[in-house]
């Protein structure tokens, strides 16, 4: 494996982390729009906190997919054609999620607004759940031929690990959304969000334990990378506890940081566990290795140069867009107005 191959494996991991940390908050706020809110004004207040950002955050997923295509096309081809229907459902939920914000905003009748707010919540729940399933289905040994074509059966996609993975990612996104919202809210909503997050954290521990058990039985993470898998699992529990504790103590920034770290460790667990493979076949000789799925050194060099030029600029304006738009909203801004979230 060359340095650039390793580098791009890490970059793809980083892009998925950024996607789940940033857009995860958007999914979570989308869920909270019906879970936490009782009235349209409250829903609007929650959606308002993410509405300037969700579109840009979603680009991390597109960038991750594009980077996989550019730097590891054989992985991209096998994974996406193999988990066809799961990925299709991810796309459908992301499509609904994207238009629901906009349609909710332009709808005029309370019924129409309510329907699109439900669409926001349902699609924001489905998307992370299905993505969680995809991430945990793709780390298990799959039926794959020697050309890298995957022929999945139902139980390759739906099994205890993938369902737990779906639940775990959905829960992490919900916490993330609530933390993000508390940072953008004033008054009663801020405390209701924190209190909901605090209560929901209790569910994280059993899910994490069950997840670790399922991981042991359904993947070869513990055989291949015992030390790093155990370390990351411990870190996940610790950061969850940190997030829980700081939520209870109303340390909002700390809670957000802690949960972001949990998300990062979960994605790292997957990428470290797979390493040096990208897909594991039931017949081990057919497994795909990073060194075999990559683009040519020339293409890797080209995209690396482009990334090195663009990343600092991108980071700068991305952070700037968050900073200049940071504001704590009051519920009163959203009462008695037909304006919607924006």
């Amino acid at each position: 494996m060359s340095f650039l191959q390793f580098f791009w494996y890490a970059v793809i991991c980083f892009l998925f982390i950024m996607f789940l940390v940033l857009d995860g908050a958007d999914f979570g706020a989308g869920m909270a729009a019906k879970l936490l809110a009782f009235r349209p004004a409250e829903s609007n207040m929650i959606v308002r906190s993410i509405s300037p950002h969700w579109d840009g955050n979603e680009v991390f997923l597109v960038a991750a997919g594009g980077s996989m295509f550019a730097t590891m096309p054989f992985w991209y081809a096998s994974l996406f054609s193999g988990f066809y229907l799961l990925l299709f459902l991810v796309l459908v939920s992301l499509i609904f999620r994207g238009v629901a914000f906009e349609f909710n905003n332009v709808a005029e009748t309370p019924k129409g607004k309510n329907a699109w707010m439900w669409a926001t919540t349902l699609s924001s729940t489905a998307a992370p759940f299905l993505l969680g399933m995809l991430f945990t289905a793709m780390i298990q040994p799959v039926p794959m031929d020697n050309h890298g074509n995957i022929f999945v059966g139902l139980f390759n996609v739906i099994n205890p690990l993938s369902i737990l993975g779906g639940i775990a990612v959905t829960a992490l996104c919900l916490y993330q959304g609530l933390h993000f919202f508390t940072l953008h809210a004033n008054g009663i909503m801020r405390y209701r969000a924190a209190s909901l997050a605090g209560n929901l954290y209790w569910a994280a521990y059993p899910v994490e334990v069950l997840f670790a058990i399922a991981l042991f039985f359904e993947t070869n993470f513990f055989e291949e990378h015992l030390l790093s898998t155990l370390t990351l699992l411990v870190l996940i529990v610790l950061t969850t506890f940190w997030g829980h504790l700081s939520t209870g103590m109303h340390k909002e920034v700390q809670a957000y940081v802690a949960n972001s770290l949990t998300i990062a460790f979960v994605v790292m667990l997957i990428f470290v566990g797979l390493f040096p493979h990208v897909l594991i076949a039931q017949n081990p000789v057919n497994s795909l290795l990073i060194k075999n799925v990559s683009s040519s050194p020339f293409t890797l060099t080209v995209v690396t140069i482009v990334l090195c030029i663009l990343l600092p600029i991108l980071t700068a304006y991305f952070i700037w867009s968050y900073i200049i738009q940071w504001k704590r909203h009051d519920l009163s801004e959203f009462e008695n107005t037909d304006k919607g979230a924006y």
Binding site: G66, P73, Y76, A77, S295, V306
Partner: peptide, 22 residues
Amino acid sequence: SRFMGDIFGAPLAIEALLAFFL
């Protein structure tokens, strides 16, 4: 994708990094 990834993927990745984010 396997045949063309080496060429087709790069513009797509750059499109996301350069244009979509912006």
